[in-house]
């Protein structure tokens, strides 16, 4: 597909990008009204947190953060990819216009914060003041999430978490079944190998990523082998939540984010686990 046409931002003439159609952004902005946008922005930024205030009132616009950003470096040092530029094009503009921005602007913000930033925190390591740029990007993500303007793939993952507390739509039955099936599989190779489910007082609880029991079951098998050979007293949770991939965190869906973290810790405290091991 030959993409020749470029999108030039209305507000920032230097912000030129190839078209990137996404139902999650293109369709959802049709539902927005100026009142809704203003209300949301004020709700998120209104009770100015110390972390937002510190960034806004300290940043001296020196752009020393720019070389920390992989997006900036890999796009021929295009100034619109610098971390400070991302703040300038999103939150500073929202505050300057007191939340009175239109749907098109929100779409542009969503594109910047979701698809041009990995919230990796490297800019904070390069900023002479150590300003938390990532937190600001996260707040803009939160505004976009509350308005429903999120790339479809990310919203999809979030909804999987909302419905099933894991990102792969796996029911509790499927999860337990997978664990038992993997136990049988490895049984042929290792004598007395167990995948203990809900073992009370175990030393370690293993919390996989959603994809492991779903599409990468050999990961379960290998983890079991390692734990067995290393002689570790381990277990996996028999109840939700077991998926430690907290996708809602990336779009700042605080409610689901909290349900997952709380679920993981509740499982651990229910079984009096000493350590959690998470797949990364």
């Amino acid at each position: 597909m030959a993409v020749s046409e470029k999108i030039v931002s209305r507000e920032f003439k230097q912000y030129v990008r190839a078209p990137n159609p996404d139902i999650g952004l293109d369709e959802t902005i049709k539902r927005l009204t100026p009142e809704k946008i203003e209300k949301t922005i004020k709700a998120v930024l209104g009770g100015r947190s110390a972390r937002i205030k510190a960034v806004l009132e300290t940043c001296i616009h020196c752009a020393l953060c720019s070389e920390a950003c992989q997006w900036y470096l890999s796009n021929d040092k295009d100034p619109t990819y610098a971390p400070v530029a991302k703040m300038r094009m999103t939150i500073w503009e929202m505050i300057k216009r007191d939340g009175k921005v239109d749907a098109e602007f929100i779409k542009q913000c969503a594109r910047i914060v979701f698809t041009e930033c990995n919230i990796c925190h490297r800019c904070s390591m390069y900023c002479p003041y150590g300003l938390d740029v990532t937190f600001i990007i996260g707040m803009v993500r939160r505004i976009c999430f509350l308005l429903g303007v999120v790339p479809q793939r990310q919203m999809d993952q979030d909804q999987a978490h909302i419905a099933t507390l894991n990102q792969v739509w796996m029911s509790q039955n499927d999860w337990l079944d997978t664990m038992q099936w993997q136990e049988e599989e490895v049984g042929a190779e290792f004598k007395n190998l167990r995948i203990p489910i809900d073992k009370e007082g175990a030393e370690v609880m293993w919390l996989p990523l959603g994809a492991e029991p779903k599409t990468g079951t050999y990961h379960v098998e290998r983890t079991a082998k390692i734990m067995h050979v290393a002689g570790i007293d381990w277990t996996v949770p028999g109840k939700d939540v077991w998926d430690s991939s907290n996708m809602p965190m990336f779009i700042r869906d605080f409610v689901t984010m909290q349900r997952i973290v709380r679920g993981l810790y509740e499982n651990a405290s229910r079984l009096r686990i000493k350590k959690l091991i998470l797949t990364e």
């Binding site: 009132e57 300290t58 390591m125």
Partner: peptide
């Protein structure tokens, strides 16, 4: 004004240093 980075420098560094 943002010249306040004179004293905010110590506060923001303290936060980020502790975070890291």
């Amino acid at each position: 004004t943002r010249l306040g980075h004179m004293f905010y420098f110590f506060l923001t560094r303290s936060f980020m240093g502790s975070q890291f």
